[in-house]
Each structure stands twice: as structure tokens, then as C-alpha cells.
């Protein structure tokens, strides 16, 4: 947090990420559906939602902001390498995974704020018409973050393995979240086999429960099954992330590449 506090523009940039990345897509929705919703029918039938702006804005805002978690944590490793402090840190830490956890705590403290700012600013250009069940929305958000950090740990291990890992990490997260997990569309548009792949990704479930809790006022009791599935899938990612970090760290120690970047 101390390091980031010196990069003031980062804070302002991250606060506005939700708006700048999602607004063009919301406006694209308006272009296709029509200003007064005159071509809403087919979309409504496909997705089960009438509120297409909210349908796009809520999960995409989560997606783009949580995407920053992947680069944040990975980049922390890379910048520690560049400044030469990674080896020093790993000597000091009793549990090396604390390096990632510490980065995650610093990031999460800002992230929730950014998501709220993102959704609020998007309502300036489109009528989001949110219909929130707060307990369900909070549980959805927390479980989504739980999944995000599990995935972030997996991806961050790449930084100890591949030298230009950032772009590989970004490519994977970009391919998995906005495309495979259907952040901006119902996965019903996929052929059957691709829908099965999509359902194996926790973020698909996260986007579903976020839409249900924030657009359709669905209570926790009706989302219980989805929450359990999301929790179990995310826990598996944490275990894989922990294992991968230790494996790649050992590999880096063996090959002497800890200080290389």
C-alpha cells in the first residue's frame, strides 16, 4: 500500500476503470437494442432478463476490476524481482505464500471501493435499474472475490516461471473471463459442449449469482446451490494456486531464476 500510495494516478485510474471499459459496451447494447428498448425481445428471451444495461454493466464491471487482481499480484512479484527485493523478501517470510496474500489484502482494500464507483458512474450514462437483494449481493461479491484471488494465485505463479508472464497471464484471464465465462452474454449462445466447459469455470457461476442478486432481487435462499458450487470451485482454485506457487518457487530456486525477469 505504501508503494502504491506514491502512484496517485493509479488510484484515480482504477476508480474509473469500471466506467471506461464497460461504458462502450453498455452504449453498444443501447445501439443494438434501441434507445427505447424497441428490439429487446430476442435478448430478453435468450437471457431471461429485460434489463440489458444492468445485465452488461454489473458482471462486466466486476470482471474488469477483478481482472486487475491478476495483474496486481503478478506484477508485485515482477516488481520485487526488478527492484531486487524478491529474494530478500523470501528470506524474511516464514511462509512464502504470504507474499501473494499480502498483495491480495492490499488490493482487496481498494477493489470493493472501485466496484461501487464503477457501477455508480455507469448509471450516469445508462439507466441501470438495479433491483438488489443486499445479503445475496454481498455474499455473491465476496464469493466472487474468493474465486478471483484463487485464480490470481494460479496465474501469479507464472511470474516465477515465465519471464514475460504478464501478457501470458492477461491472455489467459482475458480468454477465460470475458469469453468462456460469459461476462457480457448468456452462455446459452454457445454450442452445448462449450456450455459444459463454461460451467466448469467458477466465474460463470459468479456472474450468474451477481446478476440474480443485483438485478432480479433473488434472495440467498434461492441461490444457495449456486453459492455452494462457487465456494467449492473457488476453494479448489486456492488449493491449486497454493500448490502451483510452491512448485514454481521451488523450480525457480532450483534453476536460480528467482532474481531473473
Amino acid at each position: 500500500m505504501l508503494v502504491q500510495s506514491r502512484a496517485r494516478s493509479w488510484f484515480i485510474t482504477a476508480s474509473s476503470t469500471g466506467f471506461f471499459f464497460v461504458a462502450p459496451l453498455v452504449l453498444m447494447g443501447k445501439t443494438i437494442i434501441g434507445e427505447k428498448g424497441e428490439r429487446l425481445g430476442p435478448f430478453s428471451e435468450l437471457s431471461g432478463y429485460d434489463n440489458y444495461t444492468g445485465y452488461l454493466a454489473v458482471p462486466l464491471c466486476f470482471a474488469f476490476l477483478t481482472n486487475s487482481a491478476y495483474s496486481w499480484i503478478g506484477q508485485r512479484i515482477r516488481s520485487e524481482q526488478q527492484s531486487g527485493t524478491l529474494e530478500r523478501l523470501l528470506i524474511s517470510l516464514k511462509y512464502p505464500i504470504s507474499l501473494l496474500l499480502g498483495g491480495a489484502w492490499a488490493h482487496i482494500s481498494f477493489l470493493l471501493f472501485f466496484i461501487v464507483v464503477g457501477i455508480a458512474s455507469l448509471s450516469l450514462i445508462a439507466d441501470l435499474d438495479l433491483n438488489i437483494d443486499w445479503p445475496a449481493a454481498i455474499v455473491s461479491g465476496l464469493l466472487h472475490l474468493y474465486a478471483v484471488y484463487g485464480f490470481a494465485f494460479i496465474l501469479s505463479s507464472l511470474f516465477l516461471w515465465i519471464r514475460d508472464a504478464f501478457i501470458v497471464q492477461q491472455s489467459i484471464s482475458y480468454f477465460v473471463i470475458p469469453i468462456l465465462a460469459g461476462a457480457g452474454f448468456p452462455i446459452a449462445i454457445f454450442p452445448g459442449w462449450l456450455q459444459a466447459v463454461s460451467k466448469a469455470i467458477p466465474f460463470t457461476w459468479a456472474f450468474d449469482v451477481e446478476r440474480a442478486s443485483m438485478l432480479a432481487h433473488t434472495p440467498v435462499s434461492e441461490l444457495w446451490d449456486e453459492f455452494v458450487i462457487l465456494f467449492v470451485m473457488s476453494s479448489v482454485m486456492w488449493i491449486i494456486g497454493y500448490w502451483m506457487f510452491n512448485v514454481t518457487l521451488k523450480r525457480a530456486k532450483r534453476t536460480g531464476s528467482l532474481g531473473l525477469y
Binding site: L25, M28, G29, I32, I33, R39, G41, P42, F43, E45, L46, S47, Y52, L56, I167, V168, Q170, S171, Y174, F175, P178, I179, G182, A183, G184, F185, P186, A188, I189, F190, P191, L194
Partner: peptide, 25 residues
């Protein structure tokens, strides 16, 4: 990634366009 990113970048946009238009793949 730089060389191919533009092709990957258009995919989710086209998928969203498809969904908003009420079509599937």
C-alpha cells in the same frame, strides 16, 4: 500477443453483439 491481440479482442464484443441481437453461434 501483440500480433494476435486484435483478433482475440474482438471475440467477446462479437459474442455480446450476438446475444444482444438474440442470436446464438
Amino acid at each position: 500477443a501483440d500480433v494476435l491481440s486484435h483478433v482475440i479482442g474482438i471475440v467477446p464484443i462479437l459474442l455480446i453483439t450476438l446475444a444482444l441481437s438474440g442470436s446464438s453461434l
